[in-house]
């Protein structure tokens, strides 16, 4: 039995502790907003927050995050979340939308560290999340827009 705290709720789970956090979130907790795309920490679509840090859930064994505070896109609230979501809407960022939860969770970490990031800082932080549709220019604009509101 493993205890997991996700989006403020406590879950007691029977699971192999080597299972990646991603699949536990998606299949056992039904939190499908966190996406599978590469499984090898190359694309960032599976980014969640673990004790406030951006973590790639596809390569994080669930056993290692027992007892931590995990936040997924579904439970991502607060001032930064609100600013990011409003900016994402205003800039019409998503296209297919598949990577966007990962983009937002990564952008949140950036804004927590740098409240007014430069283009360079945005590029450095956001290059961790791949977008096949090419929403990169819109993401840049949206992060600047969100930063102005914070």
């Amino acid at each position: 039995m493993l205890t997991l705290r996700v989006n403020g709720a406590i879950h007691k789970l029977v699971v192999d502790p080597d299972t990646p956090l991603l699949w536990v979130l998606r299949e056992q907790l039904g939190l499908t907003g966190t996406k599978y795309s590469c499984g090898i920490a190359e694309c960032g679509a599976c980014t969640v927050h673990v004790d406030g840090e951006a973590v790639l859930s596809c390569v994080t064994p669930v056993g290692e995050v027992a007892g931590t505070d995990i936040t997924t896109i579904e439970g991502f609230y607060g001032q930064v979340a609100e600013a990011l979501r409003r900016a994402w809407i205003a800039e019409d960022v998503p296209q297919c939308g598949y990577c966007q939860p990962g983009q937002i969770m990564t952008a949140a970490k950036l804004l927590q560290e740098k409240s007014h990031p430069t283009d360079r800082a945005i590029d450095d932080a956001m290059s961790a999340v791949l977008c096949r549709c090419g929403t990169y220019p819109a993401i840049r604009r949206a992060i600047h827009r969100a930063a102005e509101k914070l």
Binding site: T32, G33, I73, R85, A90, G97, Y98, I104
Partner: peptide, 21 residues
């Protein structure tokens, strides 16, 4: 006009094929 599918895609609510339960 703003896209109609944005909110679903930034909240994790959008259901892609892989998300079907």
């Amino acid at each position: 006009y703003l896209r109609l599918d944005t909110i679903a895609k930034i909240t994790g609510e959008a259901v892609f094929g892989i998300d079907v339960q």
